Simulated assay, not measured.
Amino acid sequence: MFRTSFENLTEFVVKCFQKMGVPLAEARIATDVLLEADLRGIESHGIARLTGWYIDRLRNGNTKPVSKIRVLHEATSTALMDGDGGLGLLVGYRAMELAIRKAVSSGAGFVSVTNSRHFGIAGYYSAMALAHDMIGISMTNSGPLVLPTFGTVPMVGTNPISVAAPTGTGTPFLLDMATSVVSAGKFESAARQGKAIPVGWALDELGEATTDPVVARAARQFLPLGSDSDTSNYKGYGLGVVVDILCGVLSGIGASPMLSDSYGHFFGALRIDSFRPVNEFKTMMDAMCKGLRETPVRADHEQVLVPGDREFQSREERLKDGIPLYLTVLEALKVLGVELDVPLDL
């Protein structure tokens, strides 16, 4: 495992985006969103996807380097935004900015987005609300990968949901979860490391459980959160459909079965002081999180964690010690650097 600094990776990725025609300011935003995944320990959605999910799609015309992001319809606290086929990393950022602006003026802001592309980690955008003493909400749909309960054909995307809430002390609350058992990126990570996946993540082409991440990716039969009907996977299936409603039906781009390389998103911001005093909210959040962390634990674990604890701890460590890169990822970056004539100074 090789490690390099966040600053070195940032410089490389920004230049790669610029080489593809993305303006500097937008390239910096897209890079920050992408690499925040690596900082938080979510390698499945970070630098490992630079080539296949972003650069290659800029190359083949699927994604526009310069897009005309615009509002199609707007009310006091809501908006429908058109991403114009641009980088989802940038479209998501602009849409969450708009949701926050609306919350500043009206107490709450909600933005649905059509015609976007893959936007990275949902938790980046929900966390944007924290600095404004707001609760942030972010989600996206994607092409069909997940089987509905009792179904044999994938009809729902992995459709992640993220919610962030500020605290007075310690790390904020930050939930970022797929509505399938795991995100699609976890299969990529397992394949990259040559590791088997647990039973209950996905089925093979014959509808049987598989522990091979390559087979699972090819079969495209992921299981909804809960894995099996006996363990309530209808809940994960239902949550995935909720995401499709807010991101796909509300935006007009369509639910997961209607998608290929385009995505719909949904963002929300709730201004806490439009409900109650911020300090009172944060004091109660602190007490709740403290109680969760002090819950008695099983003998084989050290502590109950609050959503976001692991990610913020990883962020602190990786800013200090560097971002780890698997050798396969490092080699791919070297190839990309040569192709784009961007020095890879790690």
Rank of each mutant, 00 (worst) to 15 (best):
F6R: 15
F6M: 10
F6S: 06
E11S: 14
Q18M: 14
V22A: 00
A30R: 05
A30T: 11
V33T: 06
A37F: 13
D38M: 06
G41H: 14
G41V: 03
I42M: 12
E43C: 00
S44R: 10
I47W: 12
T51S: 05
Y54A: 03
I55S: 03
D56G: 00
R57H: 11
G61A: 00
T63A: 01
K64D: 01
V66F: 02
E74D: 04
E74Q: 13
A75E: 14
T76Y: 10
L80R: 09
M81C: 00
G85R: 06
L87M: 10
G88H: 09
L90C: 05
R94F: 01
R94H: 07
R101V: 02
A103H: 10
V104H: 10
S105R: 08
S106Q: 06
F110H: 06
V111Y: 09
S112A: 14
V113F: 02
N115D: 06
S116G: 15
F119C: 07
G120R: 06
A122L: 02
S126M: 07
M128A: 08
A131G: 15
S138W: 11
M139K: 06
T140H: 06
T140L: 03
N141R: 07
F150M: 11
V153D: 09
V153C: 01
V153I: 15
N159L: 05
N159D: 09
V163Q: 11
A164F: 08
T169K: 15
T171Y: 15
P172Q: 03
P172V: 04
F173A: 10
L174G: 09
L175C: 01
D176V: 12
M177P: 05
M177A: 09
T179R: 00
S180K: 04
V182I: 15
K186M: 08
E188A: 12
A190L: 12
K195N: 12
P198S: 04
V199R: 11
L203N: 06
D204R: 11
L206N: 15
A218G: 05
A218C: 06
P224F: 03
G226D: 05
S227Y: 09
S232H: 15
K235P: 01
K235Q: 08
K235D: 03
Y237K: 00
L239Q: 07
V242D: 00
V242A: 08
V242N: 03
I245D: 08
S251N: 02
G252C: 05
I253L: 06
I253P: 07
I253K: 03
L259P: 05
D261T: 15
D261H: 10
Y263I: 14
H265L: 15
A269Y: 02
R271K: 14
P277W: 08
P277R: 09
N279W: 04
F281V: 08
T283R: 04
T283N: 12
M284K: 15
M285R: 02
M285K: 02
R293W: 05
E294K: 14
P296A: 07
P296N: 04
R298G: 09
H301M: 15
Q303P: 00
G308M: 04
G308Q: 11
D309M: 08
S314C: 14
E316V: 13
R318A: 00
D321Q: 14
P324T: 11
P324D: 01
L325P: 10
T328P: 12
E331R: 15
A332T: 14
L333R: 06
L340F: 07
V342A: 01
L344M: 11
